[in-house]
């Protein structure tokens, strides 16, 4: 088993599949009255969050607690971090406290790589800057597999601000590793120039959402920050929504079986229409539930739980 999960590129197909299979076992547990396993009793998991992300932190916290680990939440606010302590000094502090795993969310790309050089425990990337968010990709893959039964050969469209999206990077890497065919869709300003060469040769690029939808089994809408229009990535929220937003007429272009995903938080009315978000094709709430199971599997396997 790998030691750290810093990038979806850390996972080969066998390891990723093992995580998804383990997550399925963990999910079975959540149907029980007592939702707790003793697997990580006596182990310490630190949630080191330099960015506010209540949903991701709670998900990791629930995952660790269901495995009986001791959980320490270390957030940038109200800690020595706000007094200017460096990441390295914080890492040495966590090291001295005997953290077995550190789950890190940070606004700087690559912060988990730096951290892994300074602590002995496992490092789990819970989102770093505009780089990656590998557990999000795992939970997305898990959701696709449970809804559609497979990943190999699946046609997935990832739509929106791919340039700034850590969710997109991790999903492209993981899904193509697992045999899916990924098309990234968005205005050319928000699609990196070398995306296929950089991430996976199984990636296609399209600037035309309407053309991609009829051939998609999954359409994943990314959050688009309205501030991007200040930097001229697109002219206005209205124009973005018209060209790349998923509304009801567009959703009808999808094949009957296709599902609609969103990593949240959503801008309803911007990249996704409320009726679409709330439709039976939408997996958005399921994704949240699956997040706990997948993060349990990741912590369990990285820490060699038994």
């Amino acid at each position: 088993m790998i030691k750290h999960l810093r990038s979806a590129a850390d996972l080969d197909a066998a390891t990723a599949t093992l995580i998804l299979d383990t997550a399925a076992e963990m999910a079975a547990l959540s149907g029980r009255e007592v939702k707790k396993l003793p697997a990580l009793r006596g182990r310490t998991v630190v949630n080191l969050f330099y960015e506010d992300s209540t949903r991701t932190r709670i998900s990791f916290e629930a995952a660790a607690k269901r495995l009986s680990a001791d959980v320490i939440n270390f957030s940038a606010k109200g800690s020595s971090v706000s007094k200017g302590e460096s990441l390295k000094d914080t890492a040495l502090t966590l090291q001295a406290m005997g953290a077995d795993a550190v789950v890190i969310r940070h606004s700087a790309s690559g912060a988990p790589h730096r951290l892994a050089g300074w602590v002995d425990g496992s490092v789990v990337n819970a989102g770093d800057g505009t780089h990656e968010h590998p557990t999000q990709a795992l939970l997305d893959a898990y959701t696709m597999r449970s809804r559609l039964g497979r990943l190999d050969g699946l046609r997935v469209a990832i739509v929106g601000d791919v340039l700034h999206s850590r969710v997109a990077r991790s999903n492209v890497l993981l899904l193509t590793t697992l045999g899916a065919q990924v098309t990234v869709v968005g205005p050319p300003t928000l699609i990196p120039l070398d995306v296929a060469a950089a991430l996976s040769s199984r990636t296609r690029v399209s600037y035309d959402l309407d053309a991609v939808l009829p051939d998609s089994d999954v359409v994943m809408m990314l959050r688009v920050q309205t501030e991007r229009m200040q930097d001229s990535y697109f002219p206005s929220a209205r124009e973005y929504s018209r060209r790349y937003g998923l509304d009801m007429p567009r959703m009808k272009k999808l094949p009957e079986h296709a599902i609609v995903m969103h990593p949240g938080p959503m801008n309803r009315g911007m990249e996704i229409a409320p009726e679409v978000a709330d439709s039976p094709r939408s997996t958005i709430v399921e994704q949240v539930a699956n997040g706990v199971s997948v993060r349990m599997a990741v912590l369990y396997l990285l820490l060699g739980g038994k």
């Binding site: 790309s109 690559g110 770093d128 800057g129 505009t130 780089h131 990656e132 850590r166 990077r169 990196p192 120039l193 070398d194 995306v195 060469a197 950089a198 991430l199």
Partner: peptide
């Protein structure tokens, strides 16, 4: 900007 714009910056998520 953080590094050369190209394949590697795209992969690393650095501006």
């Amino acid at each position: 900007a953080q590094m050369h714009e190209g394949e590697v910056s795209t992969r690393l998520g650095l501006t």
